[in-house]
Every structure is written in structure tokens, then in C-alpha cells.
Amino acid sequence: MDCITLREERRIEEAPAAYKPIQPVIDAQVAAEMVSVVAHLRPVLTFKA
């Protein structure tokens, strides 16, 4: 994934370790019949102003 920013220090602010993997969350919701998966998405670009 690419990150485009107008200010280079913005790139440092983004900490990937701060995010949990989404798949276990989705799996739990599907197992509880709260949601159904209709699409799989992946990030292509991040823009930070």
C-alpha cells in the first residue's frame, strides 16, 4: 500500500501496530450471525493531508 502525504511527518504518525487484524473480528460477527460478508476489500492508497 502506498501513502501519499503533503507533510512527511504525517507518515510517521501512522502506526500499523495500533490496529488489530480485522479478520478475527469479522469471523466472530459472521459466527454470531450478526453480519454476512458481501465483499473483500484491500487498501490501495492512503492520503494524509
Score class of each variant (00 low, 15 high):
M1Q: 07
M1A: 11
D2I: 15
D2H: 11
C3S: 12
C3E: 14
T5V: 04
T5P: 07
L6S: 10
L6M: 10
R7P: 13
R7K: 15
R7S: 15
R7E: 15
E8D: 14
E8A: 14
E9I: 14
E9M: 12
R10P: 08
R10V: 13
R11K: 12
R11N: 11
R11T: 12
I12Y: 06
I12P: 01
I12K: 09
I12S: 13
E13N: 12
E13L: 12
E13A: 13
E13C: 09
E14Q: 12
E14D: 14
E14G: 14
A15G: 12
A15T: 14
A15P: 00
P16V: 05
A17F: 01
A17S: 03
A18R: 04
Y19S: 13
K20G: 14
K20L: 12
P21G: 08
P21Q: 06
I22W: 02
I22D: 11
I22E: 11
I22H: 03
Q23G: 08
P24G: 06
V25N: 04
I26C: 02
I26F: 01
D27R: 08
D27H: 03
D27W: 06
A28E: 09
A28D: 09
A28N: 08
Q29P: 00
Q29K: 08
V30Q: 01
V30E: 05
A31V: 03
A31N: 04
A31C: 00
A31G: 04
A31S: 05
A32S: 07
A32M: 05
A32N: 00
A32W: 03
E33R: 09
E33Y: 09
M34F: 07
V35W: 00
S36W: 01
V37S: 00
V37M: 03
V38H: 02
A39L: 06
H40W: 03
L41C: 10
R42P: 04
R42M: 09
R42A: 13
P43R: 06
P43V: 09
V44K: 02
V44C: 00
K48W: 04
